[in-house]
Simulated assay, not measured.
Amino acid sequence: MEQNEDALIRRIYRELADHYDEEIELELEDRLPESLSDAGAGPDEAEREARHQYFHELFRLQGELVKLQNWVVSSGHKVVILFEGRDAAGKGGVIKRITQRLNPRVCRVAALPAPNDRERTQWYFQRYVSHLPAAGEMVLFDRSWYNRAGVERVMGFCTDEQYEEFFRSVPEFERMLVRSGIQVIKYWFSISDDEQHLRFLSRIHDPLKQWKLSPMDLESRRRWEDYTRAKEVMLERTHIAEAPWWVVQAVDKRRARLNCIHHLLGQMPYVDVEHAEVVLPARERRKDYVRLPVPATMIVPEVY
């Protein structure tokens, strides 16, 4: 009996270790093209140690995010978190690390595509409203209604009148959300000209990331200064007490993720929520049950 328990504990350990090892492999993004790998572009000892420290702190912060999630559900809190920034600024990366260990029914991501013909005739904020949280929910917007102040302004997808109306409306819209009990947190991810150039090049050379480069992304690279001016106007005209902007220095991806998560945790007064001890019930076994064989034609070939 004791041996069986030891064997079970070892199997549970291997399962957990395999789960985390797989995620670490994904985190490392160790998919260097052969040309770079052959050139000795892999991580050195200092880089490996930095990664180890990063993972250690990331897992700790993700544990706190689980506590935050439990508090959000228990308290009925409602929160909207906006992630804005230039293309390749790292918004998706931090959103992935925030949601990685959370319940998608509690913490969900809204990443809306370009509006269709019908949506273009609606009140501008209308298509975002349906994604707002109910009690006990967190919604992370991977880009948001601030598209109008950024890409729509720079690329000429809105008129001057629509642009100005947005700045008249958005402070009142966000104040209305806050008055209704929704906490609004806004992050701008800031990267340098050189860093965006480097990240675009890395996407070009990584076949698993090339899908991230759209024609709009490439055009945004050419219009760097136009986006800078649009960002400066946006931050100045929409930084309100009820929903202020927070700027994340994002040239270093790993530091940006840790800093953003740490700051996010500090924006809500969460506490540990007590839960009843989980006890796994014994499985019922019926004498009249006979497991039917699965036809061989339905079995997935074991290639590996």
Rank of each mutant, 00 (worst) to 15 (best):
V170P: 00
V170M: 02
P171T: 09
P171I: 07
P171S: 06
E172P: 00
E172K: 13
E172H: 11
E172A: 13
E172N: 12
F173L: 08
F173R: 02
E174R: 00
E174V: 03
E174M: 00
E174D: 01
R175L: 06
R175Q: 12
M176Y: 08
M176K: 05
M176T: 14
V178W: 06
V178H: 09
V178Y: 06
R179D: 02
R179T: 01
S180E: 14
S180Q: 12
S180P: 07
G181I: 00
G181S: 08
G181Q: 10
G181N: 10
I182P: 05
I182V: 14
Q183A: 10
Q183F: 00
V184K: 08
I185T: 10
I185D: 02
K186D: 00
K186I: 09
Y187V: 01
Y187G: 01
Y187T: 04
Y187E: 01
Y187R: 07
Y187P: 03
W188Y: 14
F189W: 04
F189T: 04
F189L: 15
F189C: 03
F189K: 01
F189D: 10
S190H: 11
S190Q: 13
I191W: 10
S192W: 11
S192D: 05
S192H: 12
D193S: 12
D193F: 15
D194H: 10
D194N: 11
E195K: 12
E195H: 10
E195Y: 09
E195V: 13
Q196D: 07
Q196W: 03
Q196C: 08
H197C: 10
H197V: 13
H197E: 15
L198V: 12
L198M: 13
L198N: 11
R199N: 08
R199Y: 07
R199G: 08
F200P: 07
L201R: 14
L201P: 00
S202Y: 05
S202F: 02
S202P: 00
S202M: 13
R203C: 02
I204D: 13
I204P: 00
I204M: 12
I204G: 02
I204T: 10
H205Q: 14
H205K: 15
D206H: 03
D206S: 09
D206Y: 05
P207M: 07
P207Y: 09
P207C: 07
P207V: 05
L208T: 07
L208I: 09
L208H: 07
L208Y: 06
L208E: 04
K209Q: 11
K209G: 00
K209I: 00
Q210I: 08
Q210E: 13
Q210P: 01
W211A: 11
W211M: 06
W211R: 12
K212R: 15
K212V: 11
L213C: 07
L213F: 02
L213A: 06
L213M: 14
L213H: 06
S214C: 10
S214H: 10
P215T: 08
P215Q: 13
P215Y: 14
P215G: 14
P215K: 07
P215H: 12
P215L: 13
M216E: 15
M216N: 14
M216C: 11
D217S: 11
D217V: 12
D217Q: 13
D217E: 11
L218Y: 08
L218M: 15
L218P: 06
L218Q: 15
L218W: 15
